Simulated assay, not measured.
Amino acid sequence: MKPADLTSIIIVLADSGPLTRECVERALASDRPVEVILVDNGSEDGTPEQLDRSYATDDRVRVVYNRANLGFGPAVNRGATHARGRLLLVLNPDCLVEPTTISRMAAHVGPHTGIVGALVQDADGHVDPASRRRDPLLGRVIATKLGRGSGGIDIGGPLPSGAEPVEIVSGAIILMPRGAFDTLGGFDETFFLHCEDMDLCRRARDMGYQVLLAGDVRVLHGKGGSSRHRPVFVSRHKHRSMYLWFRRHDPAAKNPLLRGMVWLGTWAHFLLKIPGQLLRKKRR
């Protein structure tokens, strides 16, 4: 099979929950040639090993074992080293694609396209606002908190019927030409978990690539297991990544006073959330 005809689907696992097998099955049912690269970040639920046995005779599936949790971005980058396709699809293990999903997303790839995202929705058909966002610049975040929607980070209004240039798409499913991925150096491995998609989209735009939302493609996004099993761990890395993104990309971070206030606010917010997270985990 020629690489030009192949899409490499990279799925990162980390105790990812019961939807993982269906995610893989649906990915393999695509109407275009695919390979599935499962990158395991030290799962303890046995899912990677089960999938490895199930697809042992299917050369379209490969399991890469990291034997430790390297973080989401680093795991995707390691998966990409095994990928042979001209297109890369980064897919969460709790996302369920349709046979035509990749073809419809790929139809929007042009010479200047760096990233194509899709509308991510829940089982009731509600679209996740994270499918289409703006950079979370400090001024915009403050505007959002004050109820000034026009300056906020979430984009309201009608959803597009085709491809629409946006600032950020959801990292739950992103399609990239291999050339763009390599030019960007893949994901920034400084981000262990969360905000790596925002960083990737920002760097793509800064390098002249288009970030597109395929408004004609909807993908069911379930609820994975990683966040529920380790809520404080996930929250800690999320807050760290939020501050890291601010330091890297927000002009307001050049002001030492603002930078210090954002640092204090970020970690105070993290500490305040811990009791509730532990209580919810205990109730489960």
Results as ranks from 00 to 15, higher is better:
residue 22 E to I: 01
residue 148 R to P: 00
residue 171 G to T: 10
residue 128 D to N: 14
residue 100 T to L: 06
residue 226 S to R: 13
residue 168 I to C: 07
residue 19 L to K: 07
residue 271 L to G: 04
residue 95 C to H: 13
residue 144 T to S: 10
residue 168 I to T: 05
residue 125 G to Y: 13
residue 76 V to S: 01
residue 160 P to N: 11
residue 134 R to N: 04
residue 221 H to N: 13
residue 163 A to E: 07
residue 168 I to N: 09
residue 20 T to F: 02
residue 27 A to K: 03
residue 132 R to Q: 12
residue 119 L to P: 04
residue 54 S to A: 13
residue 207 M to K: 11
residue 20 T to D: 05
residue 94 D to P: 11
residue 190 T to D: 13
residue 249 H to W: 11
residue 134 R to G: 06
residue 49 E to Q: 14
residue 238 K to F: 11
residue 22 E to G: 05
residue 214 A to P: 08
residue 65 Y to W: 15
residue 244 L to P: 01
residue 151 G to P: 10
residue 217 V to C: 07
residue 118 A to T: 04
residue 142 I to S: 10
residue 268 A to I: 06
residue 7 T to H: 02
residue 208 G to F: 01
residue 46 G to Q: 14
residue 219 V to L: 09
residue 248 R to L: 15
residue 49 E to I: 06
residue 94 D to F: 15
residue 72 F to D: 11
residue 148 R to V: 00
residue 15 D to H: 07
residue 144 T to K: 14
residue 76 V to Y: 12
residue 31 D to R: 14
residue 135 D to T: 08
residue 131 S to V: 06
residue 218 R to E: 10
residue 85 G to F: 02
residue 125 G to R: 15
residue 96 L to I: 09
residue 170 S to N: 15
residue 265 G to I: 02
residue 270 F to L: 11
residue 68 A to V: 14
residue 122 D to C: 13
residue 32 R to F: 01
residue 169 V to R: 07
residue 203 R to H: 04
residue 75 A to V: 01
residue 152 G to I: 10
residue 281 K to H: 00
residue 155 I to H: 08
residue 245 W to T: 05
residue 134 R to Y: 05
residue 246 F to H: 13
residue 49 E to H: 12
residue 36 V to W: 03
residue 251 P to S: 08
